[in-house]
Design a binder for these strands. Structure first.
Length: 939
RNA sequence: GCUCAGAUGGUGGAACUGGUAGACACGCAGGACUUAAAAUCCUGUGCCCUUUAAAGGCGUGCGGGUUCGAUUCCCGCUCUGAGUACCA
C-alpha cells in the first residue's frame, strides 16, 4: 500500500498510549537522562506552529537517548495560572478553571497528534490544588528562613532566634531590611510577641515591603508595566498613578553572588548568561558619606532641622576620583531633597521635580542628550579634603539604584562633565594622564594622581587600596559591592493564582498550619476587585482563618508555579512531599532544557533562586537545576498580501493586481489569509470565498497566476498569518511536520514560518516508504548480504545523525536522510539488515512511519531498540579525487591513492598533462599537500 | 547609546578544526508518462561573456589585512534582528 500516514499515525499513537511506552521508571539501572521543555501557558488560541519547534527537538533528543540506552524522563504539563484566563473570566463570567480546562484539552489533543514521547502519567498543572499545595509549602519555607552570610546559605529562622537570644543582633550577619533595630539579648527577651514578629519579618526570605505599583483607580486594580502605556491603562485608557502598597517580596538579592557565580558552571548559551550577569549587575566600589554643611547659602534662614547632623551616602565605582568631586547629585525622588532645599531654591527645585514627574519613564531614559537639574541651595563637605560642594538634583540619577545619590567628577565621567559644563561647575584634573578635559571627560585609570591630597603620586590600584583603608579608619565609608538586581515582588492583586498561605493577626502576617495546605482558591461571584479596591479575593464570603483572621488577599505571581515544576515531574502524585527524597536523588537535575530566550531574566533566574534555596534546606541535591540549556528561535509569521486597485476617487475597487504588476496601479495592500496561498500564489477560488465582499473580485494576473506580496511579522490572528499545525498534519501527517520544522533551519535561529518546502519532506517520506515496497506497493525486503555501497550509505547516516543530534543540528540530519534514501533508492537496496538499521536511525525524527515499518519487518516496540553502532571500516576509501588548485584556485580533480605521501603525489601531479597545461611551462615555486584534503601548486 | 547574534543563488539553507562554496530541498525551465489533470520519473538551474560547447572572468553585505589557500581568522565600516536602558 502507498504511504497512508493517517492510519499509521493514529495506530501508533494509540499503541504508545495503551502500552504506556514512554513511562519513565525510577528503578531502572540504566543511566538517567532528564529532557525538559518549558511548559506552555494553555491559551485560548491553541497551539501554533511555533510552539512545537522546541518540543520536536526535545522529543528527537529524548527518543535518541532512549535508543542509546538511557532511562529518559521527558514530561509535559501546563503553566495554567495566568492573566488571560482571568481577563476572559471578567468579560464572560466563566470560571477561569473551566476555560483553562478546555484549553488544556485542546493543547493535549494537538500535542498528541504530533506523536511526542511524553510521559503523560507525570503531567502537572500549576493551577491544580494538589500541585500548588507545594508551591505554597515552598513559600512557607521561605517565610521560615533567613540568609546567614557567615554560612552563606539560608537557614531556618529558629537559628536566628537563637542568635538573638544569645547575643542580640549586633553580631548577626544576615541579608535583611535596612531599618532593623539594634538590640541586646535582654531587649529581645523583653520584646512583645508583635515586636519580635515585626523584627523577624525584616530577615525572612519572603517578607512584606512597601513597593510602588501602577494603580488604576478606574479599573480598581494594579497593572503590570506592559498594561500601562504613556500613563494610561492599555485597556480602557484610564489614567494610572503610582501608589505605594505593602507587597510580598522575595529576598532574591541574598542569592545575587551565588546566582552570578553559578553561571560559570552551567552549559548555557553565552548571550543568556550575559543577560543574567547584566541583570544581577554586580559593581565593586565604595560607599562614602558626605556630611551636609551646616548653614545653607544665599542668606536663607536655616531651619532647625537643617542644623542637625545629616549625611548623604553615595556609591561609587571610582572612589579614586574623590578629590575631583565638584558637586553631588541626588535623584529628584531622594528622601532628603525637601529637607535640603533652601527657601531661595525651593521654587526651582519643586518646579524641576514636577517636570520630572510629568516625563514618562521612557522619555526620561531615552533622552540622554539634554542636561537638566536644579540646585538645592545646600552643600556637603567632601570628607577627604573638607571642600564645600553643592548639592544638585537631576533626573539622570535613579532613586532605585545604589543610594540614589552620586558624586559628580566631571574630569573622569562624561555625564558629569556635561552636567558641570552646562551649569558652570568646576572641572578638576585628577590624573596626570588625563588629556583634553576641557573638551571631554577622560575616564582613564592610567598615570599618577594630582590635585588629590594624600593619594598624589599613587597609581590607580594603590589609590583604591589606600582610600578604602582610610574610609574605614575615618568611619566615613567602606568598600562595597553593589548589585543592580532588586528583590522580586511576590504578590498580585488578582484572582487566578496561588493563594498566599498567610493570615493576619494584629496587622502581622502568620503562616497557616502546614497540615492545612493546600489553601484552596475560594469561589467568588465576580473576578473584579471589590468596591473598596481590595483584590478579588476580598469578595470571598466565609473565607477566614480560624473563623477569625483575615487571609492575605493577594495571590502569587505567574512565576511562582514555574519556579520548581521540574521537581514535581520527578514524583508527580506524591501527597507527602513535593517529590520524594528517592525520586530527587535519582533524577537530580535537568540534563537538557529547551525553551525560548524570552525567559532569560524571569523564569530562568527565579528557578535558579528557588533551587538554591531548596538546596540550602537540603530538599534537593544540585546547586543548579538546568545543566544544559538550548534556546529555540522564534518562529515569525509570514504574511501574504493582495493589492487592491484604488480608483481615481481614492476608493477601493473590485480589482486586484498581482504583486509584480502592482507598480502600474495605485493600490492598497490587504492581508490575506496565508492558508489560501500556496508558494505565494493565491488560490483565487478560496479567496472569493474568504469574505463575501471578494465574491465578485477580478484579478490582473502575471503568467496566469496571482502572486501575493510577502512580509515577515509577528504571528497574530489579526494579520491572518497564524499557521495551525492541525491543518498541516491533516494534509501531510505528523512525521512530515516534525521533519519539516527541523528542516527549516538551525534550531536556535529565529525564522519566519513558511510552508514552501514541506512538499519536499513529504516526498522524502514517501520515497523512504517505497524503499520497503515493490512496484505494486507490496511490502518487500530480502535477506541478501548487503553490498559495500549499501553499507557505506548506511554507516554514513548512522554517524552523521549521531554527530548532528549531539550538537543539536537537526536540520542537517534531515538533509542527510534525504541523501541516504536517494542513494539506497539508486542502489535498489531491499536489504533487511540495512533497512532495519535505517529505520532505527530515522525513528527519533519520524517515529510513526518507522514504528510501522519496524513492525512490518517483524519486530516489536521500536523504542526498546538499540541505536546501530557505527563502523568506520565501511567508509574507508582507497583513493580520493584530490582537488588540484593553482595559486589557490581550484582547477581540476585528480584521483590518487590515499596511501601516497607528498613526494608520490607531487610526481603524479606534475606529470599530469592537464596540470602542465595550467602551468603554461612555468616552474612551480611550491607545492602544498594536505593528505586527504587538497593539492595546491604555487607558481 | 551599549551588549549580543547575524548577512552565502530567485527562496530556506549546507560547508563541523582555514583546504573542491552553493550539499539537501523549494521554486523555475524543459522533457517522459497521460485524452487531460494529479501523482511519478528524467534533465537543467549562482552570475557574466560566448550561437553552443570547451575555456574564461566574477562571486559568501562593503573596504582592507594575515595566509600557499579565507564564507571561516584579524582591523574598519554598512545594514538587519534581539536584548537592555542615564548603573554612579
Amino acid at each position: 500500500m502507498d504511504y497512508q500516514f493517517k492510519e499509521i499515525e493514529q495506530k501508533w499513537q494509540q499503541y504508545w498510549a495503551e502500552h504506556r511506552t514512554f513511562r519513565a521508571d525510577t528503578t531502572s539501572n540504566k543511566p538517567k537522562y532528564y529532557v525538559l521543555d518549558m511548559f506552555p501557558y494553555p491559551s485560548g488560541a491553541g497551539l501554533h506552529v511555533g510552539h512545537p519547534l522546541g518540543y520536536i527537538a526535545s522529543d528527537i533528543f529524548s527518543r535518541y537517548k532512549r535508543l542509546k540506552g538511557f532511562n529518559v524522563l521527558h514530561p509535559m504539563g501546563y503553566d495554567s495560572f495566568g492573566l488571560p484566563a482571568e481577563q476572559y473570566a471578567i468579560q464572560t463570567g466563566q470560571h477561569p478553571a473551566v476555560t483553562t480546562e478546555a484549553n488544556v484539552a485542546t493543547y493535549r489533543r494537538q500535542l498528541d497528534q504530533i506523536g511526542f514521547s511524553f510521559d503523560w502519567s507525570r503531567e502537572v498543572r500549576t493551577s491544580d490544588p494538589a500541585y500548588y499545595k507545594w508551591t505554597q509549602w515552598i513559600f512557607m519555607q521561605l517565610f521560615n528562613s533567613w540568609y546567614n552570610l557567615e554560612t552563606n546559605k539560608a537557614e531556618d529562622i529558629s537559628t536566628l532566634i537563637e542568635k538573638f537570644n544569645a547575643a542580640g543582633n549586633s553580631e548577626v550577619k544576615a541579608v535583611c531590611d535596612e531599618d532593623t533595630l539594634d538590640f541586646m539579648p535582654s531587649d529581645w527577651a523583653n520584646f512583645s510577641e508583635e515586636e519580635k514578629q515585626t523584627e523577624l519579618l525584616k530577615y525572612r526570605l519572603t517578607y512584606l515591603k512597601e513597593s510602588t505599583v501602577n494603580w488604576c483607580p478606574a479599573l480598581g486594580t494594579v497593572l503590570a508595566n506592559d498594561e500601562v502605556k504613556d500613563g494610561f491603562s492599555e485597556r480602557g485608557g484610564h489614567p494610572v498613578e503610582q501608589k505605594k502598597m505593602m507587597q510580598w517580596s522575595m529576598r532574591i538579592s541574598a542569592y545575587a553572588e551565588r546566582l552570578l557565580q553559578g553561571l560559570d558552571a552551567i552549559d548555557w548559551p553565552e548571550p543568556i548568561k550575559e543577560m543574567q550577569r547584566n541583570w544581577i549587575g554586580k559593581s565593586v566600589g565604595a560607599s562614602v558619606k558626605f556630611s551636609v554643611a551646616r548653614g545653607a547659602s544665599s542668606g536663607a534662614v536655616p531651619d532647625a532641622d537643617r542644623q542637625t547632623q545629616c549625611d548623604i551616602e553615595v556609591f561609587t565605582t571610582r572612589v579614586d576620583t574623590i578629590f575631583g568631586v565638584s558637586f553631588i547629585v541626588l535623584a529628584p525622588e531622594h528622601e532628603l531633597v525637601a529637607h535640603l532645599t533652601t527657601d531661595g531654591q525651593r521654587s526651582s527645585v519643586e518646579n524641576y521635580i514636577a517636570q520630572t514627574k510629568k516625563k514618562s519613564e521612557l522619555d526620561r531614559m531615552a533622552d540622554t542628550k539634554t542636561v537638566s537639574g536644579a540646585f538645592t541651595g545646600s552643600y556637603v563637605i567632601n570628607p577627604v579634603n573638607q571642600e564645600k560642594v553643592p548639592i544638585w538634583i537631576a533626573d539622570y540619577v535613579l532613586a532605585g539604584y545604589g543610594t540614589g545619590a552620586v558624586m559628580g567628577v566631571p574630569s573622569g565621567d562624561q555625564r558629569d562633565w556635561l552636567f558641570a559644563t552646562h551649569f558652570n561647575l568646576p572641572i578638576i584634573q585628577i590624573l596626570d594622564a588625563q588629556k583634553d578635559i576641557a573638551i571631554e571627560a577622560d575616564a582613564t585609570k592610567q598615570g599618577k594622581y594630582i590635585n588629590s591630597g594624600f593619594i598624589n603620586g599613587l597609581s590607580y590600584a594603590e589609590a583604591i587600596a589606600k582610600l578604602n583603608d582610610w574610609l574605614v579608619e575615618e568611619k566615613v565609608g567602606r568598600p562595597k559591592v553593589n548589585y543592580r538586581m532588586r528583590d522580586a515582588i511576590f504578590g498580585r492583586q488578582r484572582y487566578w493564582g496561588e493563594p498566599i498561605p498567610v493570615y493576619f493577626k494584629d496587622g502581622l502576617p502568620y503562616l497557616i498550619n502546614e497540615e492545612e495546605l493546600p489553601l484552596v482558591l475560594p469561589e467568588i461571584d465576580k473576578y473584579l476587585p471589590t468596591e473598596s479596591g481590595e483584590p478579588p479575593l476580598g469578595r470571598a464570603t466565609d473565607w477566614t482563618y480560624d473563623n477569625e483572621y483575615e487571609y492575605e488577599l493577594s495571590t502569587m505571581p505567574g512565576w511562582a508555579g514555574s519556579s520548581w515544576y521540574w521537581y514535581r515531574y520527578m514524583d508527580a502524585h506524591n501527597n507527602d512531599a513535593f517529590a520524594s527524597e528517592e525520586a530527587v536523588a535519582y533524577w537530580k537535575d535537568v540534563d537538557l532544557y529547551i525553551g525560548g530566550a524570552e525567559h532569560a531574566t524571569g523564569h530562568l533566574l527565579y528557578s535558579r533562586f528557588w533551587n538554591k534555596f531548596l538546596k540550602d534546606l537540603g530538599h534537593v541535591q544540585e546547586e543548579e537545576p538546568f545543566k544544559k540549556l538550548i534556546n529555540q528561535g522564534m518562529i515569525q509569521g509570514r504574511s501574504n498580501f493582495v493589492y487592491r486597485i484604488i480608483d481615481s476617487e481614492g476608493k477601493g475597487t473590485n480589482q486586484f493586481v498581482s504583486y509584480g504588476l502592482r507598480k502600474d496601479f495605485k493600490t492598497s495592500a490587504l492581508h490575506v489569509d496565508v492558508n489560501i496561498v500556496e508558494n505565494d500564489v493565491l488560490n483565487i477560488e478560496k479567496f472569493k470565498a474568504f469574505r463575501p465582499e471578494f465574491a465578485a473580485a477580478e484579478f490582473i494576473l502575471e503568467n496566469g497566476r496571482y502572486v501575493c506580496g510577502v512580509e515577515v511579522e509577528k504571528m497574530s490572528k489579526s494579520k491572518f498569518n497564524v499557521v495551525n499545525p492541525d491543518d498541516l498534519i491533516r494534509s501531510y501527517g505528523a512525521d512530515t511536520l516534525r521533519m519539516y520544522e527541523m528542516f527549516l533551519g538551525p534550531l536556535e535561529q529565529s525564522k519566519p514560518w513558511n510552508t514552501n518546502g514541506i512538499e519536499g519532506v513529504f516526498k522524502f517520506l514517501r520515497k523512504f516508504w517505497r524503499l520497503f515496497h515493490n512496484e505494486e506497493w507490496a511490502f518487500h525486503v530480502n535477506d541478501s548480504i548487503p553490498s559495500k555501497a549499501e553499507l557505506k550509505a548506511l554507516h554514513k547516516i548512522i554517524k552523521k545523525v549521531q554527530d548532528d543530534i549531539e550538537r543539536f543540528s537537526f536540520n542537517t540530519s534531515v538533509s542527510s536522510f534525504m541523501i541516504a534514501v536517494n542513494e539506497l533508492t539508486d542502489l535498489k537496496c531491499k536489504n533487511r539488515q540495512v533497512l532495519e538499521d535505517l529505520v532505527i536511525v530515522l525513528s527519533p525524527y519520524a517515529p510513526h512511519i518507522c514504528e510501522e515499518l519496524w513492525s512490518l519487518l517483524g519486530n516489536e516496540n521500536l523504542s526498546t531498540a538499540t541505536y546501530p553502532t557505527f563502523n568506520p571500516e565501511y567508509l574507508a576509501e582507497d583513493t580520493f579525487a584530490y582537488p588540484i588548485s593553482v595559486n589557490g584556485k581550484m582547477k581540476m580533480n585528480l584521483d590518487m591513492s590515499l596511501a601516497l605521501d607528498e613526494n608520490g603525489v607531487r610526481e603524479l601531479v606534475l606529470a599530469n598533462e592537464q596540470v602542465k597545461g595550467y602551468l603554461e611551462g612555468k616552474e612551480p615555486k611550491k607545492l602544498i599537500f594536505v593528505k586527504g584534503k587538497i593539492v595546491n601548486i604555487v607558481v
